[in-house]
Every structure is written in structure tokens, then in C-alpha cells.
Design a protein around this nucleic acid. Structure first.
Length: 555
RNA sequence: UGCCCGAUAGUAUAAUGGUAGUACGACAGACUCUGACUCUGUUUGUCUUGGUUCGAAUCCAGGUCGGGCAACCA
């Protein structure tokens, strides 16, 4: 299937470059995160693209941390990023840091100063902004712009020496204050930050801006294809200007549209806010679109890769429906997840004509989609739990489940017929009474009856208890970013529903963290790391498709 | 009213001057010891106006609409 897939525009460029002998056919990409947050599914698209390109064209991919802003960065993020990339199934050729190049980048700045192409600026941020003009009016030079090379050299050295306070001076490129491209209007190259860096410690008090570090880092590593997102298109002329003036390796930048998903947000800043303000329980909260969140939720790396492949690579903005991600994980788990029975909202069912005290052992297939998954033994007895929603006292005409006089199949067991109910003072059903057909046993059914519905159950005496966490979309708005109000006002108050005591097959007590199951008719679930010896916790990864829910909503 | 990028069914994606296809979704049906899976069928699309051409989603020009750019963030 994928071999028939047509080339995306970046693959086309790479193939042309190889055909034309550009860089002797060498392909070296890089994935360049800033260690200031956890990776999300949007990063997965970039990872799959960059690493995938290298794999496909016999190249390599570097992992380079763009750590040029010491105040936002942390080693915790470095570790999580490395962990997430590996989990997604990729390994980098080299682990590198922009901060490794600080001395070299400093020398690049000296080179520009000596060429009369950079100057030390005295103006404040506000003054610089004012002098920059607007997109429709050209900027005007500040007095600093006319400094001599010698003075600039001296001042820049003194910036490095720590003689100035934060914000007191900057180094700017001297390009074109009238450029229609705002990024070419003498952009800032260096700023003063007396801050501790997660790798270089207190060695530096001046740090290069992203624009003066990213492209140069690519050149230093001799990256052939530097792939980034659309918003950096207007930066490209600046990078090309540096390449020309510094006479360094000409990495070429190509831009693609970032991945957006509906009903969530994809900015690290916003995700960080959700974590810090306690709207979620951490970066790996299963409701988060982070790699770690999706992993904990039960998503597989291959399902995330599959989404990235299906979405493709192009230059137009898009918003992917969350349903496509859900399709990807269902498609995989349908083939691989063992089926088990779990009753999430239990009601007691007594089979009045079943012998007291009898326990039968029944056989159940683990996965109808995979014969090699084998089978397991189930215990059946007189008193069971079934799902409350699988009984209706006054059933509608298309209701294929249990009700007074209605027959259903208990999965892997018998056909039963609803007889009567017992209620509490509030009118809630506390017990359902039914009779069973002894000759309808699964595997040896001689009853000749066919029933429309099959429901799941667990034996009351044998059931184990488990905590089950049901997740729904994090936001109520399809695009919280596009709304007028703050994105946090669209948080879904029902995004997490905890069921403290669901009844599950006892075999599940042996499940390990990360194991995935299909709870028959309820969805795919995986074991959460919060599980202990005494209490196992399941996360609902995704529901099964539910045409009945849709049907009943219509009515 | 500057510069840059983009526009194909509801969503996403293909067709690279030669039959507008695919996936997800929706709808209808078949099957079913999961109202799942699987299978079948249906529906809906080239932003607009001109031009080039035997032929345009594709090339050109104007327009419209959407997005980005004026951080000592990346």
C-alpha cells in the first residue's frame, strides 16, 4: 500500500537532489526541538518526516536540541524528548545541542562585525520596535547603527565579559531597514541574559537568538535538507543571507504545514499552562495530545506513525479530525488486542432456573481476528453482573438486548430471557431476574433459536474489581484557538470519568502496565502506571464504533 | 492596505497538460455469539474570471478567500 503512495513534495525535492548529485547524493536531516516542553503529536509528524526521509534515502538524522534560551529550558525536557523519539521507533545518528556551537556562533558574529554587517545596539526593545517601522512603512536607523567596526568589536567583547545588564545592549545584523520582509530589518543576533544554562552553566551571559543559531547549526552539521514548519518561510532569506556572508555550508530549508487536530490545542505554551494550572495531571495525562499522554492512554507508536503517513506532507494548512487518529488505533487494536469482558456500570442478574452453587467452565476465544491468540476459561454461575444499559424495562422496537420477555445471548454462554426486576425505594433496578435455556450453551447450541443481541457479563462470585478511567475530548470546541474567549474556557468538564469499581474477568488481575485489551462491546483499554498490587487501573484508549448509540440518539 | 505562503467532496489526500481517484466520515444494506470487525452500495469536490492549448485541477494574468510576518520566543 505504502509502496504505491505517491511522493510528497519534499521527497520529490530529495529525489531530484540525489539525481542531480547535490551533496553527492548525501541526505542528512535533523529533528530540532527546543527542550522547553514535552513532544506532542504535531512533533510526531516532523519526526516521522525527518527520520523517515533519512531511512528512505539511505541517510541519517541528527537529534539537535535548539537550546538557545536558558530561561525556558530544562534537562527534564531533554530526557522526555529522547524517550518519546525512541518510543516512536526512531534512533538518531548524533545527539547534538546548539549550545555546543556557542563559541563558533560567537565567531560568526565577530565575522559579521568585521565585515561591517553587524553592530551593537544601545536601544531598548521598545525603541528597536519603534525604529523597525511597520510592514507598510520602512524602518529608520538608530544612532547605534553607525558605530565603527572597532567600537562594535569592543562592545561585543564587553557584552560577553558581562559588563552590561540584561537588555542593556544587543547585537544586530546590519541588513536593510526598508526590507518588505520584517525579518531582514536588522534582526537581533545576540541578547544579554545572565541566566544559568542547562548545559553551559554560567559560562555565557550572552545567547544567540534562534535565527542566529538554527541555520548556522544546520550548516555546522552540514544538514542537507533542513525541514521546518510554514511559519519559518519568511526567515529563510535571512538564513540564506547568513550562509552567503559567512560562507558556510549551504543547508537548504523546506517548509511543510504543521499537524493540527481538532478538539485539542497543539501549542507547547498552552499545554504547559494546562499542566501548571492543574487542568490535567501532567504532561502525560491521557487526555493530552502529547506523545507521553497518548502512550499512557494506550495509543501505540505504530498507530501514531500511521496517522502521520495518512495525513501526508504538504504546504496547505489543515486540521485533522480526531476521528482519523481514533480510526488508526482501532484498526490496529482490532487485530492485536485480546478480548475480555468487563462490566463498567453493573447491575445484578440472577438466573432463577440455574442450579444454586453450580459453577461451569466455559471457553472463550481471545481474539476472533487472530486465531493464534488462543482461548481462555470463563466461570459461569447463577448470579452475574451485566451492564445496566443492556436492560430496558420498556424496550423500544429496535432494542436487541434484555428486557421483560426479551431474549439475548450471554457471550460465550447461554441464551437467557428476561423475567422480572427488583427495585429500590427510588425506583432504580437492583436485580434482574431471568431464566436460561440449558440447551443453548455456546459451542453446543441445540435450541434452534437465534437471538439478535449478545451481551457481556461477569460472574458475581468470580469477578475482580478494577478502576476504570474513561476519557473524552479535552475541549468542547472543535478549535479552541479560533474562539474569542480564552482557550481554557472550552475545557471539557467531562473529559475524565472515573469508575472506581468496575467488575472484570479475574484474569485481568495479572495484566501488566501498558497491556492492551478490548473490553467486549466497550472499547479498547490499557493498564495505567497508577496500577498497584491491590488495585489495577485501566484507561480507555478509545471506544468501539457504536452505531447503536447513534441510532438511539436519532430516536 | 507592504511582503510571503496557500486554495480539489464534511475532513484529509492523489492526479505533475490527457477518464477527477483514495481514505476517514455520513447514509443505506448484507453478515454477525461484540449494534464491533468484514463486505456491498450511495452521496458530496477542482475558489472565481479571463487567457494559452486539440485538451487545464495542473501553465499564465486579474480577483476572492484563508494563513503567516512588525518577541531581547522558538
Amino acid at each position: 500500500m505504502s509502496e504505491e503512495r505517491s511522493l510528497n513534495f519534499i521527497e520529490q525535492i530529495v529525489e531530484e537532489d540525489i539525481a542531480n548529485g547535490v551533496n553527492n547524493g548525501r541526505v542528512l536531516t535533523r529533528f530540532p526541538p527546543e527542550p522547553n516542553g514535552y513532544l506532542h503529536i504535531g512533533h510526531a509528524k516532523s519526526i516521522v518526516l525527518n527520520f523517515g526521509l533519512a531511512q528512505k534515502y539511505n541517510g541519517k538524522t541528527n537529534l539537535r536540541f535548539d537550546d538557545t534560551n536558558p530561561v525556558t529550558e530544562d534537562t527534564e525536557y531533554v530526557e522526555s524528548i529522547k524517550n518519546d523519539i525512541r518510543w516512536l521507533g526512531f534512533e538518531w545518528a548524533a545527539e547534538l545541542y546548539a549550545s555546543d556551537y556557542f563559541e563558533q556562533i560567537y565567531q560568526f558574529a565577530i565575522t559579521l562585525i568585521k565585515k561591517g554587517l553587524a553592530y551593537v545596539e544601545d536601544a531598548t526593545a521598545e525603541e528597536i520596535a519603534k525604529h523597525k517601522g511597520t510592514p507598510t512603512t520602512p524602518g529608520t536607523p538608530t544612532p547605534s547603527r553607525s558605530r565603527s567596526v572597532e567600537e562594535n568589536l569592543d562592545l561585543f567583547q564587553r557584552m560577553r565579559n558581562g559588563e552590561f545588564k540584561d537588555g542593556e545592549k544587543t547585537l544586530r545584523a546590519k541588513i536593510d531597514l526598508a526590507s518588505p520582509n520584517m525579518h531582514m530589518r536588522d534582526p537581533i543576533l545576540y541578547r544579554i541574559k545572565h541566566a544559568h544554562h542547562h548545559r553551559t552553566g554560567d559560562k555565557w551571559c550572552i545567547y544567540p537568538m534562534y535565527d542566529f543559531a538554527h541555520g548556522q547549526s544546520d550548516s555546522i552539521e552540514e544538514i542537507t535538507h533542513s525541514i521546518c514548519t510554514l511559519e519559518f518561510i519568511p526567515h529563510r532569506p535571512l538564513y540564506d543571507w547568513f550562509i552567503k556572508e559567512l560562507e558556510i555550508f549551504p543547508s537548504r530549508q523546506y517548509e511543510f504545514a504543521r499537524l493540527n487536530l481538532n478538539y485539542t490545542v497543539m501549542s507547547k505554551r498552552k499545554l504547559k499552562l494546562l499542566v501548571e494550572e492543574g487542568f490535567v495531571k501532567g504532561w502525560d495525562d491521557p487526555r493530552m495530545p502529547t506523545i507521553s499522554g497518548l502512550r499512557r492512554r494506550g495509543y501505540t507508536a505504530s498507530s501514531i506513525r500511521e496517522l502521520c503517513e495518512r495525513v501526508g506532507v504538504q504546504k496547505r494548512d489543515h486540521v485533522i479530525e480526531i476521528g482519523l487518529l481514533e480510526f488508526c488505533i482501532r484498526e490496529e487494536l482490532n487485530k492485536t488486542a485480546n478480548r475480555v469482558m468487563a462490566v463498567l456500570d453493573p447491575v445484578k442478574l440472577v438466573i432463577t432456573n440455574y442450579p444454586d452453587g453450580l459453577v461451569e467452565e466455559l471457553t472463550a476465544d481471545n481474539n476472533p481476528e487472530d486465531e493464534s491468540a488462543g482461548s481462555r476459561t470463563l466461570h459461569f454461575s447463577k448470579t452475574l453482573y451485566i451492564e445496566r444499559e443492556d436492560f430496558m424495562e420498556n424496550p423500544t422496537k429496535k432494542y436487541f438486548r434484555l428486557g421483560p420477555g426479551l431474549m439475548v445471548r450471554l457471550k460465550n454462554a447461554y441464551i437467557i430471557k428476561g423475567e422480572s426486576v427488583e427495585k429500590d425505594a427510588d425506583g432504580n433496578i437492583t436485580t434482574i431476574y431471568a431464566t436460561y435455556l440449558p440447551e443453548s450453551k455456546s459451542g453446543g447450541d441445540t435450541s434452534g433459536l437465534t437471538v439478535k443481541g449478545t451481551i457481556h457479563w461477569v460472574s458475581a462470585e468470580h469477578a475482580a474489581k478494577a478502576e476504570v478511567r474513561l476519557y473524552d475530548r479535552l475541549f468542547t470546541s472543535e478549535n479552541p484557538n479560533a474562539e474569542e474567549a480564552d482557550f481554557r474556557t472550552f475545557l471539557n468538564p467531562d473529559s475524565l470519568q472515573v469508575i472506581p469499581e468496575a467488575y472484570v474477568e479475574p484474569s485481568l488481575l495479572e495484566a501488566k502496565v501498558g497491556d492492551r485489551f478490548q473490553f467486549l462491546r466497550k472499547g479498547y483499554f490499557s493498564v495505567d502506571p497508577d496500577s498497584t498490587k491491590d488495585k489495577i487501573v485501566f484507561n480507555r484508549t478509545v471506544t468501539l464504533k457504536d452505531t447503536w448509540a447513534k441510532e438511539s440518539k436519532k430516536a
